[in-house]
Design a protein around this nucleic acid. Sequence first.
DNA 1: AGCATAGGTATACACCGTAAGCCTGTCAAC
DNA 2: GTTGACAGGCTTACGGTGTATACCTATGCT
Lengths: 239, 239
Amino acid sequence: MPARTRTDTAAAPIKERLSRERIVDAALAIMDAEGLDAVSMRRVAREVGVEAMSLYHHVRDKEDLLDGVCARVMRDFRFPPEDRPWIDVARDGAREWRRVLREHPNVIALWADRQRPMTDLEALMPMEFALRVISRSGMDAREGVQVFNVIGGFIMGVVMMEVGAMFSAGTTSTMKAPDLTAVHAKMPDDSVAQLLPLDRLPCIVEALPHLAECDPDEQFEFGLDLLLAGIEARAAGRG
Amino acid sequence: MPARTRTDTAAAPIKERLSRERIVDAALAIMDAEGLDAVSMRRVAREVGVEAMSLYHHVRDKEDLLDGVCARVMRDFRFPPEDRPWIDVARDGAREWRRVLREHPNVIALWADRQRPMTDLEALMPMEFALRVISRSGMDAREGVQVFNVIGGFIMGVVMMEVGAMFSAGTTSTMKAPDLTAVHAKMPDDSVAQLLPLDRLPCIVEALPHLAECDPDEQFEFGLDLLLAGIEARAAGRG
DNA sequence: AGCATAGGTATACACCGTAAGCCTGTCAAC
DNA sequence: GTTGACAGGCTTACGGTGTATACCTATGCT
């Protein structure tokens, strides 16, 4: 008889013990699959086969659960090898960060409306990595922070535009003129008065096909090149 | 007797007629003052002196109301004069966009989790403006869209970092080592096991003061300069 | 005068986060 | 063994949310 570890007195396919990790994983899965709104305590509980209140033995409250989700996402960051020129490491780090964000696009919305800093060690490691790489360029800590914020903001914003399509990419791209006007007929009474006059938006109309088709990878590399080239030039001036 | 326009038969300080505009304005005011979560139908209704269900005579649903808030924010955009070199117009346009976003910082979170394109004419005018300015650089529509996305993403992301402080700026800056460890003591049981070991985060520790103090304006201009310089160089190659 | 309708209200339902309390299985100390 | 603490499930309940449905009334047109 093996040394009994926990609950095997009933010797059945007992459902695995609940844990913070299982809960966070379930929440992340729901968020990735169905969006942020779908993540409710009851929904997560159902997913792990338990009642909602049981979760509170493992997370302080929903905030804490979402903190866990953020940290969990950061843990997906795969650190590029650092035994290379700093600029190459920086470029790969930026790409990796973008990869992680695109894999869990809703985490951006999560950050955006919770607006609170990370406090988990593992979640802070990618930031530590970034600051370390930047410091190798010869910049001092103050400049390094600026560069970190500029590049970090760039990545976040570009990914947000990629996945969010807030500026009429995506869905709008499939609109012909009549569809565009139809979309605006929200309230029945102004559907006549407020047609979207496409002749007042000539540049958007001209850009429409490209808004949909443009290659996000190419776009990202384009912007990243501009930033890194400028930063390297400035750093070279120092060193 | 002046021609009666509407309801003045009772000749009292009658509460002004409800309208979509009044509702949207109230919602925006609440969002700016108390955050996105505070914007509920009942709360907005109370603010305009009405019951919640009355709002539905003027907005289709909450989604529609939030669409209105987004459009309302875009209408704050003050178009810079365009009779100048395109790069100057672009720079001022970027600054103005940042100003609007900082004035209503929660709109970023709104975009981030609704992830749907704008369909309101007035809300699209700033985008039309941006594409028009960029086109003056001589780039074709395809490149113009890339530049728009890169600069737009940059602005959005940087402002998001400024207001969000998701990477331990702001609050973390005031933490000394003991405080940082205290923060992580979420669950009572792991407070001993998981102290945040600051010696594993040397670059963050070194950066801490600068994370708080760094001038966001300077930082923004720094990144914007890099992008615009690179873009101008590329555009000059074309033209 | 009569009547349609715009625009307010009241009620109700399903879902949300979570406080409070209960119940049971496990384990350490005696 | 027996006992007591307690970790970790469950149940119930409360006040919030968005909104469907129905109702009411004052306005304005015919």
